[in-house]
Simulated scan of single mutants.
Amino acid sequence: MNKDGLRDLNETIGSKPQNGLDDVKAVIVVLSGKGGVGKSTVAANLAAGLAMEGKRTGLLDVDVHGPSIPRLLKLGDCRPAMTGTFMVPVEWHWNLGVMSIGFLLPGKDDAVIWRGPAKAGVIEQLAKQVAWGERDVLVVDCPPGTGDEPLSVLQIFEDKAMAVIVTSPQDMAVDDVRRSVTFCRQLSTPILGIVENLSGFVCPSCGAVHDIFSAGGGERLAAETGVPFLGRIPIDSEVARSGDDGDVFLAVASQNPSALAFKAVIASVLKALEAKPAATA
């Protein structure tokens, strides 16, 4: 999408950012310094799991160049309604509302060709000009790295923001994800914990978990940096299938090893949220 596309998008969602975040109690920003670690899958299942636990939840996808959330939740053909000058989140579940730039693109194959300031402006609109209403928690799926998009998100949400950092177990990923820990600390953003995704492989025949990468990198990083470790999530072919088909993994395979691992992570996040004092508006 070029500059004309940016103009059209601004006309669609309004040119003046407003604040629909006043009644959002807490924000969980899902980050990773490394691409390909399953961050969007973790974000989608975290949001869905919180909603299924009774939390009034929002999910905001700010990956401008590669929005994955519409596919992961089978919402690819949806468009947000408007109420006044605010967009209304697309409903996945009665307790989960979703917003993504993917809902606003003219076509699924359109590329977004924007520089940093344009991206920051649209991310602010996607956050503030949405009628989130009363939400216990808003989960934000960021693109990998420590650049424009994650920086914009943490600055927009300020003291409401907390981070969940996703890594895979191998050292190459952990080296990059370590920078995400430093990034959050430099911005004074509390870190709820680290998730080690793609941690072992669940055999579809016997259910045993085999370490096909190195194991324990995320847990070691958590120990080295003094950050809580939220748990390991093994590779499962059902996770990949459900993501491609738009079926939320936790909703379709609630008792397999990876789903139980997701539930343990969600339980740890819930406990951390309950322990955190509410942020002031």
Score class of each variant (00 low, 15 high):
T83N: 09
S214D: 12
A251K: 11
V209I: 15
D244A: 11
T146W: 11
D236H: 08
G218E: 06
A163V: 02
C203S: 14
L104V: 07
A161S: 12
T280E: 14
G38C: 08
P117K: 06
A48D: 11
V64A: 06
A163F: 07
E224L: 13
F213Y: 07
G35A: 06
P228V: 04
G200Y: 02
P228D: 11
V181G: 02
V139G: 04
E238Q: 15
M162H: 08
A215R: 13
D148C: 11
V140F: 07
V88C: 06
A118C: 03
A111L: 07
G207N: 09
S254E: 14
V112R: 01
T146F: 12
G36A: 04
T225M: 11
A272I: 00
A261L: 02
K74G: 15
G49V: 03
D236K: 00
V166C: 05
K3M: 12
D23P: 01
L270A: 08
G84Y: 02
P204D: 11
A267W: 06
P257A: 15
L60T: 09
R179E: 10
G97C: 04
E149M: 03
T225W: 00
P234L: 02
D244C: 10
S168F: 01
A253C: 15
L270G: 14
G145C: 09
S188P: 01
F249P: 13
L230E: 11
F201S: 10
P80E: 03
V88A: 03
G246S: 10
L126M: 13
S268G: 14
A261T: 02
P80M: 03
L60C: 04
E224P: 09
L192G: 09
V140Q: 03
L151C: 05
V88Q: 13
A275L: 04
K108D: 14
L260K: 14
G5F: 03
